[in-house]
Design a binder for these strands. Structure first.
Length: 127
RNA sequence: CAGCUCCGUUAAACGGUCGCGCGGUAUGUUGCCGAAAGGUAUUACCGUGAGGAAAGUCCGGGCUUCAUAGGACAGAAUAGCUGAUAACGUCAGCCACGGGUAACCGUCGGGAAAGUGCAACAGAAAUAAACCGCCGCUUUUGCGGUAAGGAUGGAAAGGCGAGGUAAGAGCUCACCCGUUCCUAUGGUAACAUAGGUCCGCUGUAAACCCUAUUUGAAGCAACACCCCACACAAGGCUUGUCCGGCACAUCUUGGGGGUGGCACAAAACUUUGUUUUGAAGCUAUGCGGUGACGCAUAGCGAAGAUUGAUGACCGUUCACGACAGAACCCGGCUUAUAGGCGGAACUAAAAA
RNA sequence: CUGGGUGUGGCGCAGCUGGUAGCGCGCUACCUUGGGGUGGUAGAGGCCGCAAGUUCAAGUCUUGUCACUCAGA
């Protein structure tokens, strides 16, 4: 497993209400410092800090097929950027209106712009 | 040829790079747990991975818990007949009625002659009749008879002719139409045909109701087991060995989590697991049946999550890709759907 | 996932056993006032979520369908 998924519903609410926010053309990004990161780091066998990532797709996007499509391309976009990011955060990504009919590379570009704005990239990486 | 009707089938293909769930094999010395055996993270390889509707949740069955001596009533469901099926409100064939030239399609298709209700407006009158008219008697106003004619309405006492009468009327008769019952013939039956007989009855039962048949209730968020815990948990934020929670201070709840159910079953050997056998189901072939379907043989017989896997990107080709995503499992129904392929049947009129 | 409920003028609601669809607020015009509010008098605005069916007749009954909404660990 390359990344850890965010499972608890209350953490989503927390991230939405308290996290830093960025709205791009196709996606919205919410980022919050993960207070449980230290504990998770300890429990993690490899002793490494990591981000917890989640996707939030509401019924507004469409039927089950459209929602699945949205989740897949959002995950694909995140997977491409993941290793370049700072660790120890909760990251939630939600699609916007135009999400259907675009490619995952478009999502990746949008996400990259969002993370740059939120100062999420590692220092040695040029933005 | 064209048009039209019905049935079946399919649900873009191939290559490259990266990635996900599940199962298996190996790795697991360097990461973790453990005294060890071993387990595990990880990594590599192999296998496998959505639908014809997975949908709507409209029916039936399995499964589970609760209730239950037996019955009756009530409630609910179904409604031509015969069959198919584990079962059904489904399916097949047939009957009746309606539509179409036809192939064929459609029908919640029992009972209104058991009872009750309702039928607005219009109309004299709506299940019962006298407004006009017609006739008789009185006399210029009434009384009586009358349903042939008029106007209303979805519906007005069966139609038409003759007899009959003061005028009329199934009042009587012939024919026709419809209906109840009886007989004969054909059919398992619904029913059809023919003859006789009685009657002339408004519609509505997707109004109450009557008749026949069926029917306990809830649902996998059911339910079973295990673990953690009331100085605890879920969660919260000011991220503190804080609040929740013991003087003060800080909200809310009283439970939370896991496994099984759940990815077919049984037996044998055994620690996991392996092997064997056999069901559902699917495919092919054969046989029986008009058909739904049944029987026999052979092969296959591994989707299984819990923020929820089956994908992302690039390239090539073509008919340029519709509706759409499993969540306990099956059998149907209904609804949505770009096209492609195959088969069968019919053709009146018009055009050629 | 499972089981319920609701769709009626612009908004909030009635409409019980089928018979020409109403109420309150709002809107328009006029009267009242020097002007506005208040008050009064008129009026507009509805294929009753959509589509079939039963019936002479459907907001109402039946079936399908589309939205919205509530409850259940």
């Amino acid at each position: 497993m390359k990344y850890t998924t965010l499972k608890e519903h209350h953490l989503y609410n927390k991230t939405f209400s308290r996290g830093a926010r960025y709205s791009g053309q196709y996606v919205s990004v919410f980022v919050l410092r993960d207070y449980a990161a230290k504990r998770l780091k300890k429990e993690n066998p490899e002793k490494k800090a990591y981000n917890r990532f989640g996707v939030s797709v509401t019924k507004r996007v469409g039927g089950a097929v459209q929602r699945s499509r949205a989740k897949r391309i959002l995950r694909a976009g995140y997977r491409a950027i993941e290793p370049e990011l700072k660790t120890g955060y909760l990251v939630v990504v939600a699609p916007k209106e135009g999400i259907l009919g675009i490619k995952s590379t478009d999502v990746e570009r949008d996400l990259r712009r969002g993370f740059a704005k939120l100062d999420m990239f590692l220092e040695n990486k040029t933005v």
